[in-house]
Computed example of a mutant assay.
Amino acid sequence: MPARLLTVAQVAELLGTSVRFPRRLIEERRIVFVKVGRHVRIPESAIQEYIESHTVQPIVRRFGKAA
């Protein structure tokens, strides 16, 4: 089954940003997108990959150990 294609507005809502942010990602070619005529669509899988690759894991500190 092909990936679901999202509009720029839908991506912005998913990321909790303004529409300007996903448009900048597209302009800078930092995210995969599909041109459908003059419309731009972003595969839902591309958004998941973007989120996973930009997720920062917390640092686990161990107290009581000397460095």
Rank of each mutant, 00 (worst) to 15 (best):
F63T: 15
V40R: 06
L5R: 03
H39Q: 12
R23Y: 05
I59M: 12
K65A: 11
V34N: 13
T17H: 15
R24P: 12
S18G: 11
F63G: 13
A3S: 12
P2L: 07
P2Q: 12
E13S: 09
F21E: 11
V32M: 14
V11P: 00
P2V: 08
G37S: 03
G64Q: 12
K65C: 10
I31R: 01
V36G: 04
V56D: 09
A67H: 10
T7A: 08
L5W: 00
Y50H: 04
E52D: 15
I31L: 06
I51H: 07
E49D: 13
P43Q: 04
R4T: 14
V60S: 10
Q57K: 12
E27S: 06
L15H: 04
V8F: 02
R38D: 10
G37H: 06
E28A: 07
R38Y: 13
A67V: 11
L14Q: 13
I47R: 00
H39W: 07
I47N: 00
E13N: 10
R4N: 14
F63H: 15
G16T: 00
R24A: 06
V19Y: 05
R30M: 11
S45D: 08
A12I: 00
A3K: 08
M1I: 07
G37E: 00
V34D: 10
E13C: 05
F33Q: 06
S18N: 09
L6V: 05
Q57W: 13
S45Q: 06
V36Y: 05
P43K: 01
Q10E: 08
E28L: 10
Q48S: 10
R29L: 06
G16H: 02
R30E: 08
R62A: 14
F33V: 04
A9G: 03
S53D: 11
R29T: 04
G16C: 01
F63A: 13
F33G: 00
Q48A: 12
V19G: 04
E28Q: 08
I51M: 13
P22F: 00
E52I: 09
G37A: 03
R20G: 07
P43G: 01
T55L: 14
V56H: 12
L6G: 04
K65N: 14
L5A: 02
A67L: 10
P43A: 02
E49Y: 14
A66W: 13
R30Q: 07
E49A: 11
E27L: 06
S18M: 13
A46M: 02
V19W: 01
R20L: 10
R61K: 15
R24N: 11
A67M: 09
H54T: 06
V56P: 11
R41C: 01
E49I: 13
G16F: 01
I51G: 07
V60M: 12
E49S: 14
V11C: 02
M1P: 01
P2N: 09
T17P: 15
P58K: 05
T17R: 14
I59L: 15
F33S: 03
L6T: 01
E44W: 04
P22C: 03
R61C: 15
A46H: 00
